[in-house]
Amino acid sequence: MPLTNVTGIARSEGDPRVERKGPSSLTGPDRLARALGWFSIGLGIAELVAPGRIARTLGLEGKEGLIRAYGVREIASAVPTLSVDKQVGLASRIGGDALDLGTLALALRSDNPKRDNAAIATALVVGITLLDLFAYFGTKSVHSREPGSGRDYSDRSGLPRGAQASRGLARKDFDIPADYRAEGRVAHAVPERAA
């Protein structure tokens, strides 16, 4: 059941309900970034909860503490990746990918009996790195504001009589209401007291 049907319980009878979904403001790179953010959380939890199993699978016994630290790093990267500042999170993920590849390189040594597993993991991380790079540059391109692109709106005064002639023009038929005065009430009392 679509989520919009579930949330319908919070609406009244006459409120419009979604019949058919249309095009979204989310772009492809935005959706990819979001998926990578959730992937980061999943991987991070796995690394925190089962570092021993991961270490044994990859032949990295003794590196459980490092894997757990990487789990923390994954979750820390996921937070900005899932936020509106996704490029910060994606940059952090790309840095993390480099660390992962460096660590997996240790497991690719010839005397590691789990070398094949490490090779598969390395291939997966390379793939994820490519997705991270695609999402990073994709979101940057979709959401960037070109430097020096500001248009000149200096002909848009909104004051048809000109800025200088408009100064105080509202005063001819408008006074700040009494309940909006901030200064007057105090200032009026001062001269009498001073006298």
């Binding site: 019949e19 249309g22 989310l26």
Partner: peptide, 24 residues
């Protein structure tokens, strides 16, 4: 009718929705 509908963070869509009706 057509409307801009919130579906989540950064996700606004141009959806087809039912018409509103007088309730009160």
């Amino acid at each position: 009718m057509k409307a801009l509908v919130w579906h989540g963070k950064e996700d606004v869509r141009y959806d087809t929705v039912t018409d509103p009706s007088i309730e009160n």
